[in-house]
Design a protein around this nucleic acid. Structure first.
Lengths: 156, 156
DNA sequence: GGCAAAATCACCCAAAAGGGTGACGACAAG
DNA sequence: CTTGTCGTCACCCTTTTGGGTGATTTTGCC
């Protein structure tokens, strides 16, 4: 699409020209049938709207081809410590240690069954813990819980 | 344009509304001015072409115009970058841009439905993308995909 | 002009996850 | 002793997710 942009614009111009020519030609016919101006206008409008939308989509769709990024050795990461188990935030959200444990395992991509095996409890218990921690975090999905956990500083 | 998806219905609705409004307006104007029909046609054509292009831009504004950004920050702690240093690992894993986009939204805790609305595609498409990216990452769950994505340096 | 990759969408089915309710025992604090 | 919290577990139900298959259209490339 990158190199075809000019071609498409050219094509667009050609089509426009042809349409204009066709309009001039059909003008004579419509001068006789004078009450068809609405249909006429509608045709033009519809055609050009369609073409315009198509062109707009084409022009803006694939703009992610040239992704030449040059990232030097930068990035001020305020990550001082190795990890940050924010105990303050945890208690502020009234998240119990067991729920926190569950959340961490969720963040590691484990299923409820795997977490249950690892914590040596039943799957229903894991579901209870996760439900509670979702409620306290305001999350509706486990991926969202992980995202919010990181945002709250509960997860590394 | 054969399938009647939400996108097409929406597009047709917008086009139809604008078309009818413009027709009413321009018809009135045409009766007053009584100029040549070419100007009239050209106006409509240009207007609708512009509207179409604007619509296309609005609907698919995902311009990833990443220019060479030189950030001479001299900060210690040469940890990872602020964003995702993809491209290298992404192509190595054969993850397409669209799949990458889906993965990022998954990492933000969105459901398939929300992702579908945000990317303006159907939910089935999102499921296809996510399935493919899970397969390429070796993940079986979305939380695991997020974790692996971070481990591979695809996600911040 | 044809090919391959990418993107899109549909349908089905099974598994996982999520929401709600209720319950029981342990344990610490009042 | 009562109360509250925590951890544990079960059941039911709905929604979400994952897996598989097939199809079409768009796009980039040769």
């Amino acid at each position: 699409m990158s190199k075809a942009t000019a071609k498409h614009i050219f094509l667009y111009g050609i089509i426009g020209g042809i349409l204009i020519a066709a309009l001039k030609w059909s003008e004579y016919r419509f001068l006789v049938i004078d009450h068809s101006i609405e249909i006429y206008s509608g045709l033009i409008a519809a055609t050009f709207a369609a073409v315009g939308i198509w062109l707009g989509l084409k022009l803006t769709r694939k703009q992610e081809r040239i992704v030449v990024k040059e990232v030097p050795v930068t990035v001020p990461v305020p990550m001082a410590g190795p990890f940050c188990p924010d105990e303050a935030k945890r208690e502020e959200l009234a998240i119990t240690p067991r729920e926190m444990e569950t959340l961490e395992l969720i963040a590691q991509g484990m299923s409820n069954r795997e977490i249950a095996e690892k914590l040596f409890v039943s799957e229903n218990t894991v579901k209870t813990h996760s439900s509670r921690v979702f409620d306290k975090l305001g999350a509706r999905r486990r991926t969202q819980a992980v995202q919010l956990g990181k945002a709250f500083g509960l997860l590394p």
